[in-house]
Simulated assay, not measured.
Amino acid sequence: MARSGTAFPEVTLAIIAGGQGRRLSGVPKGLLVAEGRTVLERLLVLASRFGDVLLVANAPEPYARFGLRTVADVVPGKGAPGGVHAALVAARTPWVMAVACDMPFIAPEVPGVLLDGADEDVDAVCFEVGGRLEPLLAVYRSALASAWGEALAVNPSMRELLSRVRTRLLPEDVLRAVDPTLRSLANVNTPEDLERYGVALPSR
């Protein structure tokens, strides 16, 4: 993908917040604190490089102070596939970079690596690390919205959805070239993750 300076004007940064973090006492995961800032604030450091920013949140109230354009799932109850679909539907740009709101440590070089793989022959670009896909640190063509939404009727997995479109899988060494420890893939879902990554619950 051609860049304008260091920016990605044809790409929406879509932060997928979904619902509440049930395994973290219902705390909105975007408000977890890593190295002195909320995870959402850390992700928004990337925002200035994108043409637009969007938050997908079914419970938007905790994030109101950030002033982001916020949408809920169009097809409720579909988890990550539904969150990505909502972002594709709401996007005002040809491409969407989807990131999960529980990933505090995305290296600043990662968006460029993903978007370098986004060309006219590709619908999605995703890392594959240890045989596992990383669909919530990935790039999608917005035009997928209609077909993606129809596919949700049978509760497909993210892997199945990606198998139906022209997906470019980037191998682990491509990510390690900019993030040697793969810290970008760290996500915080459980109390054990809080301890492992040095992340704290927000103060009440």
Score class of each variant (00 low, 15 high):
residue 1 M to D: 06
residue 4 S to K: 09
residue 6 T to D: 10
residue 7 A to Q: 08
residue 7 A to G: 10
residue 7 A to L: 10
residue 12 T to F: 02
residue 12 T to V: 09
residue 14 A to W: 02
residue 16 I to P: 01
residue 16 I to M: 11
residue 16 I to W: 01
residue 17 A to G: 11
residue 18 G to Q: 02
residue 20 Q to G: 04
residue 21 G to I: 01
residue 23 R to D: 13
residue 24 L to Q: 02
residue 26 G to M: 01
residue 30 G to K: 00
residue 31 L to D: 00
residue 37 R to N: 09
residue 38 T to I: 03
residue 38 T to E: 04
residue 38 T to M: 06
residue 39 V to I: 15
residue 41 E to Y: 05
residue 41 E to P: 04
residue 41 E to W: 07
residue 42 R to N: 03
residue 45 V to M: 14
residue 46 L to G: 09
residue 47 A to R: 08
residue 47 A to Q: 06
residue 47 A to L: 02
residue 48 S to E: 15
residue 49 R to Y: 06
residue 51 G to P: 03
residue 54 L to D: 00
residue 56 V to A: 00
residue 56 V to G: 05
residue 58 N to W: 00
residue 59 A to M: 05
residue 61 E to Q: 07
residue 61 E to M: 01
residue 62 P to E: 01
residue 63 Y to F: 08
residue 64 A to F: 00
residue 64 A to T: 14
residue 67 G to E: 05
residue 68 L to W: 07
residue 69 R to C: 05
residue 69 R to E: 08
residue 72 A to Q: 08
residue 72 A to W: 00
residue 74 V to P: 10
residue 75 V to K: 00
residue 80 A to S: 12
residue 84 V to N: 06
residue 84 V to R: 11
residue 85 H to D: 10
residue 86 A to C: 12
residue 88 L to D: 07
residue 92 R to S: 15
residue 94 P to K: 14
residue 97 M to N: 07
residue 97 M to Q: 13
residue 99 V to N: 08
residue 99 V to E: 08
residue 103 M to K: 15
residue 103 M to H: 07
residue 105 F to K: 10
residue 107 A to E: 13
residue 107 A to W: 06
residue 108 P to L: 13
residue 108 P to E: 12
residue 109 E to T: 10
residue 110 V to W: 02
residue 110 V to I: 15
residue 113 V to R: 11
residue 115 L to G: 00
residue 117 G to V: 02
residue 120 E to Q: 14
residue 122 V to Y: 02
residue 122 V to H: 08
residue 123 D to A: 06
residue 124 A to G: 08
residue 125 V to A: 07
residue 125 V to C: 11
residue 128 E to Y: 05
residue 130 G to E: 01
residue 130 G to W: 01
residue 132 R to V: 08
residue 134 E to G: 01
residue 136 L to E: 09
residue 138 A to E: 05
residue 138 A to G: 09
residue 140 Y to R: 04
residue 140 Y to N: 09
residue 146 S to I: 11
residue 146 S to Q: 15
residue 153 A to R: 14
residue 155 N to R: 14
residue 156 P to S: 09
residue 156 P to C: 10
residue 158 M to E: 13
residue 158 M to D: 15
residue 159 R to C: 09
residue 161 L to N: 08
residue 162 L to E: 02
residue 163 S to I: 03
residue 164 R to F: 05
residue 167 T to P: 11
residue 167 T to A: 15
residue 167 T to G: 12
residue 167 T to M: 13
residue 168 R to S: 14
residue 168 R to G: 08
residue 169 L to S: 14
residue 169 L to F: 15
residue 170 L to W: 07
residue 170 L to Q: 08
residue 171 P to Q: 03
residue 171 P to F: 06
residue 173 D to M: 10
residue 173 D to V: 11
residue 175 L to D: 05
residue 175 L to M: 06
residue 177 A to S: 14
residue 178 V to Y: 03
residue 179 D to V: 01
residue 182 L to F: 02
residue 186 A to I: 05
residue 188 V to L: 04
residue 188 V to A: 04
residue 190 T to Q: 09
residue 192 E to W: 05
residue 194 L to V: 13
residue 200 A to S: 15
residue 201 L to T: 00
residue 203 S to E: 13
residue 204 R to M: 11
residue 204 R to P: 13
